[in-house]
């Protein structure tokens, strides 16, 4: 059996491809790009929420938010670790992020203006991430699929703590409920954009589905997310900002309005409200941490010298 045939057989049998196996060069490159973009998203995703750590309304909420942001850092690390099994290293991937050559999820280019945004991010942004990541636990590449299993377990905490914040706000005074509604108004459409372009405009879908990197199409995942989220908004007593949203008995799904694709592409291309800030902050953190990395290297060298002597 040729290496190509073996690879095809493994994928067809729902078996996992492991790093040392032969794989098509395009499969390897597609995975590196996707896992890197996923890792960058986790890392940049710490910023909008980190913005509220010092302003969390109670010590309890502050502890939760710190744990969540720490998880996002951890998720980034699991993913860089998965990317590295494909022969790249994380410094190199990070450098490309800093240079603006690598992207991350556009959702993190929106600002977090109120405490209700923290609840809404947990509910919608992490909810959308879970929808996608549950699918990715069945991805054909072993290390990526395994990282997703760990991440999904932790994301459940993220989504639930966010929804609980919104329950509290919606049960509170009218001003708090209005704050929750305002957050939903601003985050709803960007959350739907997280699923990417329509299947008809998605450059990668067909090949990725064939390789079982991706198991469900963008539009199908988006529909799944809308169907799941509508009753949750109802429970909160909040209104989803889409006049075209309604249950379609015949389809057994919700119909919903068209996304503003001009906005989507503008943010993808770097013109969202926070694109520049996010990268600037990331580069600053990396540069200001240089002395820690240098000290660790020097310390390790000194200790190794002592053992040798």
């Amino acid at each position: 059996m040729s290496p190509e045939d073996r690879f095809d057989a493994v994928v067809a049998a729902e078996d996992k491809v492991e790093p040392a196996d032969w794989m098509p060069e395009q499969y390897r490159k597609t995975l590196i790009r996707q896992i890197a973009q996923h890792a960058h998203s986790e890392v940049i995703g710490m910023q909008p929420e980190g913005n509220w750590i010092a302003r969390a309304p109670t010590l309890h909420r502050k502890a939760i938010l710190m744990a969540k942001v720490q998880d996002e850092a951890g998720h980034g690390l699991y993913l860089y670790s998965a990317a590295e099994t494909l022969g790249v290293d994380r410094d190199q991937l990070q450098e490309l992020l800093h240079q603006g050559k690598h992207k991350y999820s556009s959702i993190f280019n929106y600002p977090t203006l109120s405490w209700a945004d923290i609840g809404t991010i947990g509910w919608l942004v992490d909810g959308a991430a879970i929808t996608n990541q549950v699918m990715l636990t069945r991805c054909s590449f072993g290390p990526y699929a395994r990282a997703m299993v760990r991440i999904c377990k932790e994301e459940s905490f993220h989504q639930r703590q966010g929804y609980e914040i919104l329950i509290r706000l919606c049960q509170g005074p009218a001003e708090q409920k209005a704050m929750a509604q305002d957050a939903l108004d601003r985050w709803w459409w960007p959350s739907l954009m997280m699923f990417g372009p329509h299947d008809t405009d998605s450059t990668h879908t067909e090949q990725s589905m064939q390789w079982k990197i991706k198991r469900v199409s963008n539009d199908d995942l988006r529909q799944q997310f809308v169907d799941m989220t509508v009753p949750q908004a109802d429970y909160l007593g909040l209104t989803i900002p889409d006049p075209d949203l309604r249950w379609n008995e015949e389809r057994g799904h919700h119909d919903f309005g068209e996304i503003d694709w001009d906005e989507f592409w503008a943010v993808v291309k770097g013109n969202g409200p926070m694109n520049r800030d996010r990268i600037e902050h990331k580069v600053k953190a990396w540069e200001e941490g240089a002395w820690v990395r240098e000290a660790a290297t020097a310390h390790a060298a000194k200790k190794a010298g002592r053992t040798a002597a």
């Binding site: 996707q34 290293d89 490309l96 050559k101 959702i107 929808t131 699923f195 990668h204 879908t205 291309k269």
Partner: peptide, 26 residues
Amino acid sequence: MTYEVPVAPGESANIDEGTELSAEPW
């Protein structure tokens, strides 16, 4: 949500960028 890298109309998808093998200091 998707973690595929979106390619904007008129943008080229350079799939090779950052996928070359390299050495790591640590």
